[in-house]
């Protein structure tokens, strides 16, 4: 299946979805007015990928900002990953947050408590 690579903008993140390596990355900011449109191809790609995933899927989420419009879409991404894990594949989620950004750490903990995959919380120190 195809890989997806989306260049970041001031309002949308850089996205890289690689079926060959099983690496999923979302980095940057996610603050569009309407997020559903932006995340649709990502969620659809994960749906396709879940029919034949790598043994190990590594997910790197490194967001500087995200708005509440994006938060539901990001949860949809995690729910797809939860499905992959439920089908007995390994899924590792790395949640990056900047030093002192407690809100972002807490946002990761919120997601972690909703989906049943443990997160690795990784603090980025300048």
């Amino acid at each position: 299946m195809d890989s997806i690579s989306i260049e970041g903008t001031p309002k949308t993140p850089t996205v890289s979805l690689d079926a060959g390596t099983g690496i999923v990355e979302i980095k940057g900011r996610s603050i569009p007015e309407n997020s559903i449109e932006f995340y649709r191809p990502i969620v659809e790609w994960l749906e396709d990928y879940s029919s034949g995933p790598q043994k190990l899927t590594t997910v790197n989420i490194q967001l500087e900002y995200f708005n509440t419009s994006s938060s539901k879409c990001i949860l949809d991404v995690f729910k797809k990953l939860e499905g992959i894990k439920k089908a007995r594949n390994e899924v590792v989620i790395n949640w990056y947050y900047e030093e002192d950004d407690e809100d972002m750490l807490e946002a990761g903990e919120d997601y972690e408590s909703i989906i049943r995959i443990p997160f690795k919380m990784i603090e980025i120190v300048d």
Binding site: I36, T68, K72, L75, D110, S113, I114
Partner: peptide, 29 residues
């Protein structure tokens, strides 16, 4: 925090946003 998670996980969202999640988020912060 619990309300935020509940709305995030249970409420239908539209293109306009999600069930007052913005206001909950502001209040939390």
């Amino acid at each position: 925090k619990e309300l935020y998670k509940f709305v995030l996980n249970n409420q239908m969202f539209s293109d306009k946003g999600g069930g007052g999640l913005g206001l909950i988020d502001i209040a939390r912060r």
